[in-house]
Design a protein around this nucleic acid. Structure first.
Length: 468
RNA sequence: GCCCCCAUCGUCUAGUGGCCUAGGACACCACCCUUUCAAGGUGGCGGCACGGGUUCGAAUCCCGUUGGGGGUGCCA
């Protein structure tokens, strides 16, 4: 038996959808695990909506989540529009075999006839009229009586009564094949063995299965995975929801976190849900895929992201954050950024970030020429009875310190606090406000060590002067 | 309307007839730790939609109801 061939068939009509990413990941895991192939086919036949530039966007998005076009399991991308001849030929084959026929009824004709007969839908009215090709004529598939059983690897056998499926259009009156047909013909030509896609396609699967059979090929293994839904329990869509993978990337989500989270939607890893991809790839089984829709929960995604950020080494964290650190929204000039200082602070920054975009804001005061004063925090801190006195004494003591390191900075301030009967929590507040302009931030003494004696004292003296 | 799918804490889920007084994770709350804020630790809150069966025994099997979703195009 030849190796399995999977595929995803996105249309280039916008940014790559997280739901599409999840489906791609499921296919990818199986293709790699089983030594099979993952085919990317761009379904670009809707000329009104598709835009060529989105194709590269899809490839980039896939690469981001680890589905690399350089991997030997990857094949494509193919463009559906390159195969129009084959689609048309397949339709002709069906017409020649009497499995499809021409019909000249327009939507208005159909509506009128239904109105007259009190019926709905299209009841195969042109089946036996033996119409040939001609302007404004479509080709419809002749749906045979009986039942069609879709053997789905996730849902089991699903039975459809053919009588309820009307003779659907294969070729539009303008000569263009419809999605259903093109999709099947391409799958056949690309020797796809497993069609794993979202559940929204389940209802149309009997039509596709009939097409596979009519075209003389046994249908593939079907597998319909549950939909991703929003808080309203409707499938997430571009219109209503934040679905662009690229957007999450731009907001500072880690690819590994996104991948891991996506894999928990519709499937459960063995053991802890935070799992490295190789483990997931090895454990993933179609039989274990769930049946009910999953809510795409931003809060849970954020939790995964925080976990993955904390797992990064300092250097990895720096590299991951670089675009935000040196970008226009960093909050400080790029030329004032100092890698060494950032690296030293990294272990203290990581647990304070949900996304990579949070990083600059945690340490911006280290790279700013002057701290930005949060007036409310400042007022509150220096309203405390001994705050100003502590600041003054700290300036003197810090100026006299021999070794400038966080242990010494801490014990020195602790000693000052003791003379005022203050705990360290209270004692550090004025120093933090003076140096960072805020009342919250990363551990103070570590930050002061990194900031350096001169700059620390300069800021403390400035604050003292401002308070005078 | 018709067809199809689905149904365990707010959410993601474990659970495949007795191990379930239903387990975990996120969120939330409390406490601990503590140098602020986080992170971390401990604990708490909270669920088998409903009604019938089947069975010695049902979250687990069957039927129905209800609820939710998807499909039903000369969109993909």
């Amino acid at each position: 038996m030849s190796s399995p061939r999977f595929r995803i068939a996105p249309s280039p009509t916008g940014y790559f959808h997280v739901g599409g990413a999840r489906t791609a990941l499921f296919n990818w895991a199986l293709a790699r695990q089983l030594g099979g192939t993952f085919v990317l086919r761009i379904e670009d036949t809707d000329t009104d909506r598709n835009r060529p530039e989105w194709t590269q966007g899809i490839i980039d998005a896939l690469a981001w989540i680890g589905i690399s076009a350089d991997d030997p399991h990857f094949e494509g991308p193919y463009l559906q529009s390159d195969y129009t001849q084959q689609h048309v030929a397949a339709v002709q084959q069906l017409v020649d075999a009497g499995k499809a026929y021409y019909c000249d009824m327009t939507a208005a004709d159909i509506e009128a006839r239904n109105k007259a007969e009190g019926s709905t839908g299209y009841a195969g009215w042109s089946r036996d009229r033996n119409l040939g090709p001609g302007p404004d004529r479509v080709v419809r598939f002749r749906v045979l009586a009986g039942t069609t059983i879709v053997r789905d690897q996730v849902r089991g056998d699903v039975e459809f009564d053919n009588a309820l499926i009307e003779d659907f259009v294969l070729l539009r009156s303008n000569g263009a094949p419809v999605f259903l047909l093109a999709n099947v013909v391409d799958d056949i030509h690309m020797r796809i063995s497993h069609v794993l896609r979202a559940e929204e396609h389940l209802s149309n699967t009997p039509k596709q299965q009939m097409l596979w059979e009519a075209l003389g090929t046994p249908s593939p293994v079907w597998a319909h995975v549950p939909l991703l839904v929003n808080e309203q329990r409707k499938k997430i869509s571009k219109r209503r929801d934040k679905v662009a993978l690229e957007q999450y990337r731009a907001e500072g989500y880690l690819a590994n976190a996104m991948v891991n989270y996506l894999m928990t939607l519709g499937w459960t890893p063995k053991g802890p849900e935070v799992q490295p991809w190789p483990q997931i790839e090895g454990d993933f089984r179609l039989e274990d895929v769930h049946l009910s829709p999953a809510f795409f929960d931003l809060k849970k995604l954020a939790a995964f992201n925080g976990d993955y950020i904390r797992m990064l080494s300092a250097h990895e964290f720096l590299e991951a954050c670089r675009p935000w650190l040196l970008g226009p929204d960093a909050g400080f000039p790029a030329d004032r950024f100092d890698e060494t200082k950032f690296l030293a602070m990294a272990p203290h920054i990581q647990p304070r970030c949900v996304t990579l975009a949070d990083a600059p804001g945690v340490v911006d005061f280290l790279f700013l020429a002057e701290p930005i004063i949060d007036q409310d925090a400042w007022a509150k801190v220096f309203a405390a009875p001994d705050a100003v006195a502590v600041l003054r004494e700290a300036i003197v003591a810090y100026d006299a310190m021999v070794e400038w390191n966080h242990e010494a900075l801490k014990s020195t301030l602790e000693a000052i606090g003791a003379t005022h009967d203050l705990k360290l929590g209270k004692t550090q507040a004025p120093v933090r406000a003076a140096v960072s302009g805020r009342s919250v931030g990363p551990p103070l003494f570590e930050a002061l060590e990194v900031l350096g004696r001169d700059e620390t004292l300069r800021r403390m003296r400035n604050a003292e002067a401002a308070l005078a």
